[in-house]
Structure formats: structure tokens, C-alpha cells
Design a protein around this nucleic acid. Structure first.
Lengths: 124, 124
DNA sequence: ACCCTGTTTTGAAATCTGTCAAGCTAGAGT
DNA sequence: ACTCTAGCTTGACAGATTTCAAAACAGGGT
């Protein structure tokens, strides 16, 4: 359909990248990284991410009741986070457990670093 | 009409916030921060942000030609970055100059910190 | 084998987003 | 005052997102 099979983010392709404040990001890199920020760009997903990142791992059954949203909706948001490469999950018996992928997390943090003292030279 | 007057992000309301990996973010905070991540969640805006952040300030006239997009489209993306509180602009004679708001930037970076040693060591 | 609970998938509706064309506004220079 | 350029706003449209209900799937227990 219109669903275009989001390519699961390949972390190796990203494991590079100086902070975006250091030099302009090229289009290719931006295309890889933007989906990660986008995944965090929804209040529900941001809270989900935060809940997941705050503990070693957490069951969907503990995530869902924290929201006024249907199960399928939460499941959808978790899928977005998974496809962005930010979290991992596995089923253990009846329940599905989610945990953060620290590399991805670190990645994003590194991109936002204000590395050095901002140059005062001209922008020309 | 469907445009719902995005509330310009109030940085003071955000100037707090432990990293999202430390404790679950509440709904209110998520509602304030998510728009910032969302603003970075588009490849074009991420590149714009990166171009702006790489120099003390930069003219729109130097941003536009870096993309295969119309002027209005770039203008629209810049507006999103502005309303997210990530950049500031002002007109100086003929040209409009953009610069990053370092507080906002720092904010986001801080949120993504993996503060302490995580409980597990997994990452299998 | 059957049912029950937890989670994901599918399908559909309402809303939002990214983009461009056309028109508008702000300064600068003549 | 007129005109030129740089940038923004409006209006419109195709495509994406968010959400739920219904249905499917996965394990566990009876």
C-alpha cells in the first residue's frame, strides 16, 4: 500500500558523525538520522522511550496502562521506536519485554553535543 | 484552519529535566520537549539545523541554494525550527540571518545523556 | 483440545505534513 | 515614487501519521 516498508535503521551506517554543530550534515547522513529524531518527536513515544530507558527492561503490560490509549496504538508506537533502532524487544512467555539500545541513544546524544566554544569568526 | 497555532516552545518550562533515561518523563514535559525532537525529525530540517549550528550565524540566502527545494519550502522549515525554539532569526537590511539557540540545543543533548552506569550490561 | 490473556496486524477515518505556485512585504538603490 | 531582490504567507494537494475496532497470533493453563 502506501506503507513503504521503513528500512530498519542500520546503526553501523550512523556510528560516525561529528556533532551537527561542528559541520553541516550531508543529505545521506541526515536521511539516516532524521528518523531517529522523528521517532522521539511524538509525546507518547517520548514517554515510552523514557519509561523504557529508565529501567533495564520493561514489559508492554507495564507500559500500556500509563496511557489513555488503546493497546494497538501503544503497540504501533513501540514499533516505530523499534524500526528507528532505538529499542529492542523480545517475547518471554506471555509477555513482551522492551529495552533500550544504548548505542543508538549515545549516537543521538553525541550529535547534539555543543562541541567546542563556538567560533566567533564570520559566517561568510 | 486545521493549523492549530503551535505554541512557541517556552524554554523556561523546559530548563530542567533530567535525562530521559533517568526517570520516566511526565506527559506535560513530553508535550513540551517532543516538538523539539519532531523539528529535527525531518532530513531537510536536520541539515538546516546543522548548517546553522556550524557557524555563528547564516543568511537564508546561503541556506536555500543547498537544497533542491523552493524558497517557500525552506522558509516553512525554518519556521518550524523557530517555533520549536531551536533557532532565532532577525532581518538585517535585505537579508535574514539565522542562529542557533544554544540553550535549546544543550537541553536536548542533556535529555539524551546516558547518565549513570546502566543497571545491566546487556546489549547482546 | 479449548479457552483466556497479552500483543501485534490489518483496515479505515480524521488529521497533519511537505511541497509548490502565486501573491505579499521589507529594504535598498536609483 | 518606482523597481528590484530576498524572504515570508496563503492556498491547495498528495501523501503520511495517529488512532481505534476488529481480527489474528502466541503462550499458558485447565
Amino acid at each position: 500500500m502506501s506503507k513503504q516498508e521503513l528500512p530498519v535503521v542500520d546503526l553501523n551506517a550512523v556510528a560516525c558523525c561529528s556533532p551537527i554543530a561542528v559541520r553541516p550534515m550531508d543529505a545521506e547522513q541526515a536521511g539516516v538520522v532524521a528518523p531517529m529524531f522523528k521517532a522521539l518527536g511524538d509525546p507518547v513515544r517520548l514517554r515510552l522511550m523514557s519509561m523504557i530507558a529508565s529501567v533495564p527492561e520493561i514489559c508492554v503490560c507495564d507500559l500500556t496502562p500509563a496511557f489513555d490509549l488503546s493497546g494497538p496504538t501503544i503497540s504501533h508506537h513501540l514499533k516505530v521506536l523499534r524500526e528507528a533502532g532505538l529499542v529492542d524487544s523480545d517475547r518471554r512467555g506471555t509477555w513482551v519485554w522492551y529495552r533500550v539500545k544504548p548505542e543508538a541513544f549515545r549516537q543521538l546524544g553525541a550529535l547534539l553535543e555543543i562541541s567546542a566554544a563556538p567560533a566567533t569568526g564570520s559566517a561568510a
